Computed example of a mutant assay.
Amino acid sequence: MIKFFRRVRYDLMGKNKTGKYLKYAVGEIVLVVIGILIALSLNNWKEDLADQGEETRILGGLKQEFETNLAEVSRNIKLNTSTRESTIALIQLIHTDEPFANQRYLDSLLNEVYMFGSFDAQTGLVNEVISSGKLSIIKDTELRSRLTGVSGLLDNLEEDYIIRNDYYYNHIIPYLSKYVSIINQDKFMNFSGWSESYESNKLDDSPFKQKYMDIDLLQFENLFAIHKVNNDFVNLDEYDLKEFFTQTLKIINTNLDLKE
Rank of each mutant, 00 (worst) to 15 (best):
M1D: 05
M1G: 07
K3P: 00
F4N: 00
R6N: 15
R6W: 05
R9Q: 05
R9M: 11
R9H: 02
K20W: 15
K20R: 10
Y21C: 09
Y21M: 15
K23Y: 09
A25W: 13
I29P: 13
V30N: 14
L31W: 10
L31S: 15
G35L: 08
I38N: 00
A39R: 14
L42P: 07
L42V: 15
N43Y: 07
D48V: 01
D51K: 13
Q52H: 14
G53R: 13
I58R: 02
L59Y: 10
L59E: 05
L62G: 01
E65A: 00
F66P: 09
F66W: 00
E72H: 07
S74R: 14
R75A: 02
N76M: 12
I77P: 05
K78M: 08
K78P: 00
T81L: 04
R84F: 10
R84V: 03
E85H: 01
T87S: 01
A89S: 11
I91L: 08
Q92L: 04
I94V: 07
T96H: 04
D97I: 04
P99Y: 15
F100A: 10
A101H: 14
R104C: 04
R104N: 07
Y105C: 03
L106E: 05
S108G: 08
L110V: 06
L110K: 12
N111C: 07
E112I: 03
Y114F: 15
F116C: 05
F119A: 13
F119W: 09
L125K: 00
V126M: 04
N127T: 10
E128L: 08
S131E: 13
S132G: 04
K134N: 10
I138S: 04
T141N: 11
L143F: 08
L143S: 09
R144C: 09
S145K: 10
T148A: 13
G149V: 01
S151C: 02
L154H: 01
N156F: 04
L157K: 14
L157A: 01
E158G: 14
E158H: 11
D160K: 10
R164S: 10
D166Y: 00
N170G: 04
Y175G: 11
L176A: 04
S177R: 15
V180F: 00
I182A: 06
Q185R: 09
D186E: 10
M189F: 06
F191C: 14
S192L: 05
W194C: 05
S197K: 04
Y198Q: 06
S200R: 03
N201W: 06
K202M: 10
L203G: 03
L203W: 15
L203D: 06
S206V: 15
K209I: 13
K211I: 06
M213D: 12
M213N: 11
M213Q: 14
Q219K: 14
Q219S: 12
F220V: 09
A225M: 08
A225V: 10
I226M: 08
V234F: 03
N235C: 09
N235I: 09
E243S: 13
F244I: 02
T246G: 03
T248S: 04
N255Q: 13
K259M: 00
E260H: 14
